Structure formats: structure tokens, C-alpha cells
Computed example of a mutant assay.
Amino acid sequence: MQRFTLTLAEVPISATVQFPSTREYCAEWETPEATPVEHVTISEQDIAAEREPHTPPSQAEAFSSSYLETLALYRAIAQCMADHDAILFHGSVIEVDGKAYIFTAPSGTGKSTHARLWRELLGSQARMINDDKPLLRFNTGAAGTIQAYGTPWRGKHMLGTNIHAPVKGICVLHQAPKNTMTRLSSAQSLPLLLQQTFRPKEADSLEKTLAMIMRMAAELPVWSMGCTPTLDAAALSYTTMSGDRSFV
């Protein structure tokens, strides 16, 4: 067994896990000096529960137990984050000039590709916060801001780091033959944000999570973007979301 403390979205958490590799996976977020306010333990049963939905019966051993433990750990942590005004969101997040920009879409749509195009367009000006599962925390930093935080769960290419920034806007991507962007109303964006947010099982935590999603829809600019996998698409989304017209 491995026991360590990590801090995610400024919340210190004590984790007890089965595999040393899980601790190594979280090494950038380990904070031994912090006093935990949450405690999670991952059992063999938790790992087994992750195996069934992630593998077809014919490939029951396709994923290692150590990998599945990392999924069980993020699920256990995500269950308790609503108590700390935070949610786990499915998206790719880039920081540019101190602001975070989130790209979200169903898996395989191209959010990581679009984030890569931003990095190609902006160079060192753009930094990856997280490429898959960032945490969004409310009422931290400057009053009224929603902050995006990096986590160890940063996608298959492991892009991201332990930094955070206030969210400037969210872009919901879909593939299209030409590049277009449409600003969504709160009512239009709410179901799209809900689809991409981890929803806890406990009623109280779920209620808190839904309230935070509603706040996102009300307070953040949310855009729908039909995009091609080109630098022109990155330039359009960057200029529209940031207000910087230097690429027009």
C-alpha cells in the first residue's frame, strides 16, 4: 500500500493506493507538508469496478490494474470535490496571458488537436494546463472568478502541468467543413456543459455540482465552433475568445 498527500485545486487530499506507480503518476501534485482535508482509499474492489466499463469481455485484461487504479483514484477524488466548490470537467485547457481557455467536445472530436493548433499558433505564449480532465474551482482567487487547475489526469499525451488560471471562456467544438463560431446563450450552453462534467452520486454533492454548472453557463462566455483541423481555425477561436485581433 502507498499513502501520500496531494493537493488538487488547492484542496489537500490523503490518498491510499495499491500501486507505487499511482503515486508516481501524481508526483507533481504531491505535497507532504499539507494537512489533508479529504481522505480517499482505493481498494481492489474499486479497481475491479473500473475494469468492466473500460474493456469489452474479450479483452478483460486490456488495461493493467495499475492504470485502472489511476481512474479509480480520480473518480474517488471527483466525488468529494463539490464540497470544496470544484468540479471535474472534460476538456483541454490552455493558459495564454494569464487566462484559461477551455475546449470541450465528445472524445475523438478534436479538442486536443485544436489545443495543439493553438500552441503552434501562439508558441511559448500558450501553456497547457490540462489536456483531458482539469478541475474547475469557484470563488477562488479574485472575487467571482472560476479557476481552471491542472490535474495528473491530463490525457493520453500527458500534456499539462500543476498551474491554474481564471477561465476566460469555453469553446464547444464540432467538426465542420468550414470554421464558424456562435456565442451560445446560458440556456443553450447548459446541457452541453452538463454533458462534459463529472456528476457525483451523492444527492447533496450532485446538487452542488448542478449549481456550479448553472453558474458556468450564466457567467462564462460559451461558444459553439464548427472547425477544421487548421491554423485558421485556431486563429478564429483565439481572436474571438481573447479579443486579440493580431491574427486577423
Rank of each mutant, 00 (worst) to 15 (best):
G150Y: 01
S242A: 09
M212F: 14
R127T: 12
V37P: 12
P152C: 00
T31F: 02
H157K: 15
E10P: 14
T151I: 03
D244W: 00
L192P: 14
I163Y: 04
L8G: 04
A203M: 10
W153S: 11
I94N: 07
I47A: 07
F138M: 08
L71C: 10
N130R: 04
Y101C: 08
H114A: 08
T5K: 08
L173N: 07
S58I: 02
T104C: 14
H164M: 08
G144M: 05
A143H: 08
S185Y: 01
I77F: 05
I170R: 01
Q59I: 00
L206A: 02
V167L: 13
E61V: 09
R127C: 10
Y67G: 10
K156E: 10
K99G: 07
F198H: 06
Q188F: 00
A187E: 09
L231Q: 13
S14A: 14
L73M: 13
P229N: 01
I87M: 13
P166A: 05
P152E: 00
Q175W: 04
I47L: 07
S65C: 12
D85Y: 02
A34L: 02
A165E: 11
Q18F: 02
A76K: 13
H90E: 06
S21Y: 07
L231T: 13
V11K: 04
R3F: 00
